[in-house]
Design a binder for these strands. Structure first.
Lengths: 232, 232
DNA sequence: CGCGGATTTGACATAGTTCAATTCGAGTGG
DNA sequence: CCACTCGAATTGAACTATGTCAAATCCGCG
């Protein structure tokens, strides 16, 4: 069961008044510019303090969440008690997508820092798929990206530690600027990339020795973008 | 471009006359028992000789295929020229599911043996999603299973060679009987499980020494089901 | 200032890869 | 029916990237 005791629901989110409505799944849920739709089919905004769960593995799936700001990790714990991280969700990412396909969540989603999310009720999402081709396509595209991401992860598991870390950093690089903010710990990074924490650490050290990167904990500056891409 | 020169189209498939229509996505495409639907929205049956491609990476996505019998492998070739196998498709499996999300195929699908398939036109599939909640749910469930499979593969990459092979064999075990027919070569198995061919071979040898398995090439008999499950 | 967790560094162990050599086995042709 | 062939599979030996364990250091925070 999820513990929402600390999560602050800020009430119904007026998607049609939201600045992001043009780019957000929530906006499309309310209005795709073609068909009529309810002004707000139950979208809620809430804020999660660091460490709190959005949902846990096995919980009844009721909403899919769009991240407004902050960061989550989605993970499962193996029978042996090892935590495996399946994804990090940053701003504009979607958490709990499997809720659309499954009646329970297939992973636990936990805030890495104070995180704002909008929750879209599954029932509304499923209903909207029947009404709106635009919405259906948007959702299908999201699934397609998720499949691609997973295939990419599978590919990356076949690469060296340096390649995995480099590829991850390249993926995090913003279009403008060379600064990467890493909201997750080295431990979590290792659990995501399937590397021992020590190995992650050694890769960072190696990248700094080669002047590809300068890293001060969570803050990270890419000094040689080309070199980093070449490694990945 | 796909080379279909050797593929024999046996014409429109009368899904409503097919013995499998109750269990097959094609059957549901034509009739979900609730809404009216076209008698046949362009489903085709065809047969692929061993070695022939159903489609190749980058081809325009036009159909999703249900395997009637035989076997396919879906793979991609990395920039370095290495073949990575993303999935094997056996009877009743679906190949080219990404066609529903993407305008091109994201992997090449090739017959491992003579294979019969039914091709469902994407346009019809997408259209039917809007008409039929039953069909929509069926398709979403298929996506959910694919996500689960990929998560499972990611998990398996973190296990030992023995565990990977054992898990694969367990997955192939039929409900009745202990015989497993492996339509793929050891090389392909290695490319799927991310193991060197030699390692796959050594695992099989080890399993036979421990009397868990008896393997004669493609034919394979599980002698100790419990032991196999225990390894995985 | 000092505690406790996170990170880094070092030394060593090992599973799996790589390369090389052999054996097996399904087709094929005589 | 048997030899021949060629790719697939197996076996062996040595190597290596990464894991594991242990110790040292850093860092944020009360």
């Amino acid at each position: 069961m999820s513990d929402h005791s600390g999560s602050l629901s800020t009430g119904l989110a007026p998607c049609h008044e939201c600045a992001r409505r043009r780019h957000c799944l929530g906006g499309l849920l309310c209005d795709d510019g073609v068909t009529d739709a309810q002004p707000n089919p139950g979208v809620h905004r809430s804020v999660l303090p660091k460490g709190q769960h959005l949902h846990r593995y096995g919980d009844r799936a009721e909403t899919v969440a769009v991240i407004r700001s902050g960061a989550l990790k989605t993970y499962v714990v193996s029978p042996e008690g090892e935590e495996q991280i399946r994804a990090f969700q940053l701003a504009n990412d979607i958490a709990g997508l499997e809720a659309i396909c499954s009646d329970t969540y297939r992973g636990s989603a936990k805030a890495l820092s104070r995180t704002w999310v909008c929750r879209l009720p599954i029932a509304a999402v499923r209903a909207r798929m029947l009404e709106s081709p635009v919405f259906r396509d948007r959702l299908l595209a999201t699934f397609g990206r998720e499949l691609d991401r997973l295939h990419g992860m599978l590919h990356r598991e076949r690469c060296s530690a340096d390649q995995r870390v480099a590829a991850f950093l390249v993926a995090q690089l913003p279009a403008d600027g060379d600064d990467v903010e890493l909201p997750m710990s080295r431990v979590d990074l290792g659990r995501y990339l399937d590397l021992a924490t020590e190995t992650v650490s050694r890769v960072f050290t190696r990248l700094q020795e080669r002047h590809v990167l300068r890293s001060e904990g969570a803050r990270c500056r890419v000094l040689d973008r080309a070199a980093l891409s070449a490694i990945a």
